[in-house]
Design a protein around this nucleic acid. Structure first.
Lengths: 147, 147
DNA sequence: CTACATGCAAAGAGTTTGCATCCGC
DNA sequence: GCGGATGCAAACTCTTTGCATGTAG
């Protein structure tokens, strides 16, 4: 989940914006999440390195990085929101209602489903970040054992 | 989108809860939404009839009605949350990003997709209210005409 | 008459904004 | 040095909670 190959330095500077240490640390902190990270996790990681960084700066920069499409955010509902480095291929998530664990769902699994909706109803679904709730394999096992 | 056939009076009273005028008005107001209604819309409709009804009462009752499964809520992300009367069959929605229009998506279209995920990853998707964003047929036509 | 509900106000959490200062370019 | 970015604090919105009063059953 590295962001080194994104040429983010130039993509920020090209438009007259500045590559501040805070922005670099924030990008690093999102990468450390290994895929999806909450605001609080990012904030904790940044603060560990630079305690002076303010929450307002993180709010402003998450919006900024999303605008530049260096980062994408996904709203899990119920106030839960996660951020991750933006990659070329859209990908999706399965969120367990029991334990909160997040699994990945490949885009090629989702694509035929969207295509089917388009064929049937002429509605072009455009979700680069689908979130599906349910029960993960582990929790399904535990439920079977203790009904 | 009537709720008269839900036997909601008894379903509330059976468990020792009370059928207050406020609760009736709130149920009515959700129905008026014709499918999905935001908190503010419900509040405005209730206040039009009874200005004394407090926001806290609406918060408490929306949670209460969702607990009793008389109402379901769907989180559209970005702070957008809608409520509607709960019906037997789960149903899903296609939301147009351009015009905001909401179309229905039949459950039998969605079911095989969930089954496929379960077969592949052993993850039991449990969404009785899937929301998919995209572009509706009308807006797709308009886009073609003016690129 | 009893316990659940309501209205009110105040507290709480999460996020945004105005402004002086700072610093990348 | 210019203009964008930061840190700070205050403001703001949205939601929840405690409590006295009201009222459905």
């Amino acid at each position: 989940m590295s962001h080194e190959n994104l040429d983010y330095q130039n993509r920020i500077r090209k438009q007259g914006f500045r590559l501040t240490p805070q922005r670099q640390m924030i990008l690093d902190a999102i990468c450390e999440g290994g895929g999806h990270t909450t605001f609080d996790e990012i904030f904790a990681r940044v603060q560990a390195k630079a305690p002076a960084v303010h929450k307002a700066t993180l709010y402003r920069n998450l919006e900024f990085l999303c605008d530049l499409r260096l980062v994408v955010s996904a709203d899990l509902g119920a106030g839960r929101k996660v951020y991750e480095i933006c990659h070329a291929t859209p990908h999706h998530h399965l969120v367990c209602r029991e334990c909160g664990k997040i699994e990945e769902l490949a885009h090629h699994t989702v694509e035929p489903f969207f295509a089917q909706i388009e064929a049937a109803q002429n509605f072009a679904v455009d979700m680069d970040h689908l979130i599906l709730f349910g029960t993960c394999p582990d929790c399904r096992n535990n439920q079977d054992k203790s009904p």
